[in-house]
Write a protein that binds this DNA or RNA. Sequence first.
DNA 1: CTCCATACTTACCTTTTGGTATGTACTTAC
DNA 2: GTAAGTACATACCAAAAGGTAAGTATGGAG
Lengths: 136, 136
Amino acid sequence: MEEKVNLVKEALSERYRRGDVLSDQCPAREVLKHISSRWGGLVLIALHEGDTFRFSELRRIIQGVSEKMLAQTLQVLEQDGLVLRTSFPVVPPHVEYSLTKLGSEAAVHVVGLANWIEENLSGILAGNKDSIEEAP
Amino acid sequence: MEEKVNLVKEALSERYRRGDVLSDQCPAREVLKHISSRWGGLVLIALHEGDTFRFSELRRIIQGVSEKMLAQTLQVLEQDGLVLRTSFPVVPPHVEYSLTKLGSEAAVHVVGLANWIEENLSGILAGNKDSIEEAP
DNA sequence: CTCCATACTTACCTTTTGGTATGTACTTAC
DNA sequence: GTAAGTACATACCAAAAGGTAAGTATGGAG
């Protein structure tokens, strides 16, 4: 079994020179955490639907997100260079959010996953016994 | 602005008949949560590398995961019908994990995202100022 | 007879995450 | 003059996630 683990590591050797989400040291795992955080992926999906959005628009589209969490998530994604924040110095405040080039590329994969889930939802739910039967 | 939100909702109308991760009611969001949970995606990625894996192999490959979390994550993914668990009634116990057809399809998207992150890691890190400069 | 290995489970505790409520600054609408 | 809208920040608390350590069952190795 030790050999098999090594074989897999060997197959992943190319990955070690860039990033490796399977390694707990690698910053790639941090980035994956940001994108796959509770609201991170949904923000990318929402932004992928249009060009620019205001804070309050995003709040309405991403159902259930609180102001605090949306602000926090947007900041993290902005720091990763995935989201662009443009604020206009007017009152009341006007801020627009959009995806950067990097952000669009990442969003494509997240949207791909979300679409797959949405299309295969019934199949997945069928495999999930909890949703149809429950022990008394 | 209300019109814009409606326009987006209209553009997503097709999605409402299947699943919609942007809706907080829809079970699709739960499935997304499972897959994008801290260890869920990494399990899919690891399993995607080979045919079958034993519990202890997965623990070694997915660096940093605890026994408790790996067991829990595998159970959730099994309930969603993404992971297949095969146990052989021998002693010491022998259990093999692999992806189902559904699981393979989901894994493709997760692997795609992970690969993108790994390939673009330096670019992302460059946009992330926290990793190079720190306020004193 | 004791130790080791496998694949877990369980109890206990800490850390992280997330929600609610409130405050801010300013202007327009009523 | 009071409320509403905008884009947040902040404090406080509850819930969830996660780690550690120990226990379980069983048989073989020493």
